[in-house]
Design a protein around this nucleic acid. Structure first.
Lengths: 219, 219
DNA sequence: CTTTTATGAATGAAGG
DNA sequence: CCTTCATTCATAAAAG
């Protein structure tokens, strides 16, 4: 059942960041040397907020569905429902809340990573990751997680590419001559699980850039 | 079931808000001299967000009201509701029947799981799993394995995150005392403030349980 | 500016 | 539990 979201939320917060750390630099969050306070949300908080909103969207969606099925024989509620959906408030609900930043390797870093990857060592152990990260950090912002993810993705995609390139001997029921330009269109065969994005709650909520445009990444 | 929703809505409405914000009404609030990046929301943005969330809360509330009046004479609504929740098409990720092989928790299920997880009882005993699965199955397709995996992953990842997040600050024993025995990331990790790995807790705008009401932009 | 693509990150599941 | 892999999601970058 969906009850007391508030409690659950609170706990969620606690669990993930009970430590009120100051982070590496003493003053980051909301106070500055001018005595002014600003509102600040961390990515974590943003994520939680996002999930909550998605939950709302989903609930609304489900409620609507429920009503549809319950009142399919009448029309009085249909009108109202339609109204609700058209309500300016609702339509304005969709906004992207956070511009999630993501690491982008610098050319130098990429080159190094690529080189290491090609050296064959399939699994960069934890220790290895640390070393690599350390080295790459001299060429730009980077974290071990970034390195880890990079290798994970690199391997996975490399593998997938092979699948498309190699299968020259087997069966092809629904085959779609993808082998020609497989170098870049490794993901074009999503004929199987591509879903309707327009109706997903997530999109409903976060596809718009309105709010995000107001978020500032300040220095 | 409906009652739960109703209560939940009520609680949301009555939630308090206690965020201290003076806000530098200007606009680009925030400044810091350490070269780190933080996200900042202005009052206007807060207001927009608040409206959006309130709108959702209102819609949910109205839908619940509507549903109540429409089904006040019968009791089969509960069954229907359950059905809807279990219907794969209604879930947030509902779409192609032929696609998807991997379970994806619905927002509602996620909320519940998080709540249980945060309850601290880090003992996902077999029996407990059964219970949880049973409860969650009311909100969508799910199996015990799913629940088991979820807790395993949740725990492992939470732990790992802790290592990254709580490098050199440390303290705050209020929470689970995870054994960050292993060495943690070097300072290069800490500099990640501008990336999504960064997580600081403190002075949350939404520390409050319920966002919809906690968002009140006071002034 | 809008759409598409490339790819960093998140997460369910499997193996050990 | 921890690590690894596969798939999916989201977004920076590129294309139109």
């Amino acid at each position: 059942m969906i009850m007391d979201w508030e409690n659950q939320q609170k706990q969620q917060q606690n669990q993930q960041q009970q430590q009120h750390e100051e982070l590496t630099n003493g003053n980051n969050n909301n106070s500055n040397n001018n005595g002014i306070f600003v509102k600040v949300m961390t990515d974590e908080q943003m994520e939680i907020l996002r999930k909550q909103i998605v939950a709302y969207a989903t609930i609304c969606e489900q409620l609507v569905e429920m009503h549809k099925s319950l009142t399919s024989h009448t029309d009085l509620s249909g009108a109202r429902l339609g109204n609700l959906y058209c309500d300016p408030f609702v339509t304005s609900v969709g906004h992207k809340i956070t511009g999630r930043q993501r690491w982008t390797p610098t050319p130098v870093q990429l080159q190094i990573l690529e080189r290491i990857f090609d050296q064959g060592n399939g699994t960069p152990s934890k220790q290895k990751i640390k070393e690599i990260t350390s080295e790459l950090s001299q060429h730009g912002q980077i974290s071990e997680t970034n390195v880890y993810n990079w290798f994970q993705n690199r391997r996975a995609r490399s593998k997938r590419k092979q699948q498309v390139t190699a299968p020259n001997n087997a069966e092809s029921e629904v085959e779609t001559e993808v082998e020609s330009s497989n170098e870049k269109k490794t993901k074009s065969e999503d004929f199987q699980s591509q879903h309707n994005q327009a109706t997903r709650a997530e999109d409903l909520c976060f596809q718009n850039p309105e709010i995000s445009s107001g978020m500032h990444s300040v220095d």
